[in-house]
């Protein structure tokens, strides 16, 4: 077993431990466990960072070239951005959703091949790491916006209909959820914008054209417009709360489609090698 695979497995185990701690913290309301869960998650993130570093050393290129690597990188960004937001807002109820998500991603990534992707001369460019890092950071932040949006809708429903389940006591206030929705948007949107721009520059270098309307580019652009509309609505029209939450959820569905769906259904330069070999 290579060092990389071993570290990958350790990361997975630590994330599972953090998930269990968060579950006990939130479901059984042992709130004193929250900080242990955070600590565990931080350790997991550090091990995960080491995993990615060894992967980089083994493969010799930024490790986001196949689905296994993409899932791992996504999970890493997701946990990282959650911990950043959590620094300020202390949201155990978000942690309990984010952690299992990362676990699922790593499990899925672990089932699919660890093998090293083909060396693709196209990926041998400085624009590649910049483009994927920006893109995945954006994905991660928008995933948080999606989760927070769901939490908002649940909490809002209970406050409106005045029927309170155990969830009511565990979810944070509407105000905080709405603020985080906005924060995610105000970080995620510039990240996504820059990802698209760097992608275009890179494409120009590789193929001599900025934009080719391949399905990935098209769906990313649609998603971008959706988030742009949300940002505009928030800043200029006074959208907030329920509406902002709903748009963030729809945006995420588009995002997931452009991240995985397009690759599953269509073949183009953005597809992961993994899927090619599946077909």
């Amino acid at each position: 077993m290579s060092v990389n695979i071993m570290l990958y497995k350790i990361t997975l185990v630590v994330y599972i431990a953090a998930t269990i701690l968060f579950l006990i913290d939130v479901l059984l309301r042992r709130t004193s466990l929250g900080n242990y869960a955070r600590g565990t998650l931080l350790i997991g993130l550090l091990v995960h960072t080491a995993t990615l570093a060894t992967r980089y050393a083994e493969v010799g290129q930024t490790p986001v070239a196949n689905l296994h690597e993409a899932l791992s990188f996504f999970a890493w960004m997701l946990i990282g951005s959650y911990l950043l937001i959590d620094l300020r807002y202390r949201l155990d109820s978000l942690g309990v959703m984010v952690c299992p998500l990362a676990v699922i991603m790593l499990l899925a990534g672990g089932v699919i091949f660890y093998e090293v992707p083909h060396q693709n001369p196209m990926l041998d460019s400085w624009w590649f790491p910049v483009h994927v890092t920006l893109a995945f950071a954006g994905y991660a932040v928008f995933t948080l916006a999606f989760l927070v949006g769901i939490m908002y809708l649940l909490q809002e429903r209970m406050l409106k209909t005045k029927s309170f389940s155990g969830l009511y006591y565990r979810l944070p206030s509407l105000d905080i959820l709405d603020i985080i929705n906005y924060r995610c948007l105000s970080f995620g949107f510039p990240l996504m914008t820059m990802a698209i721009i760097t992608g275009a520059v890179w494409a120009n270098q590789a193929w001599g054209g900025y934009w080719r309307w391949d399905p990935k580019e098209t769906s990313a652009l649609v998603t971008w417009f959706l988030y742009a509309a949300l940002l505009h609505g928030r800043l200029n029209v006074g959208w907030r709360g329920r509406r902002a939450a709903i748009v963030a959820i729809i945006g995420f569905i588009f995002l997931i489609f452009s991240l995985f769906g397009v690759n599953l259904m269509l073949s183009d330069e953005h597809s992961f090698d993994a899927f090619k070999s599946l077909r």
């Binding site: 909490q155 406050l159 009511y168 206030s173 509407l174 105000d175 905080i176």
Partner: peptide, 9 residues
Amino acid sequence: ELARKIFGQ
């Protein structure tokens, strides 16, 4: 308490 759930602070 309800106000706290709506407004936070």
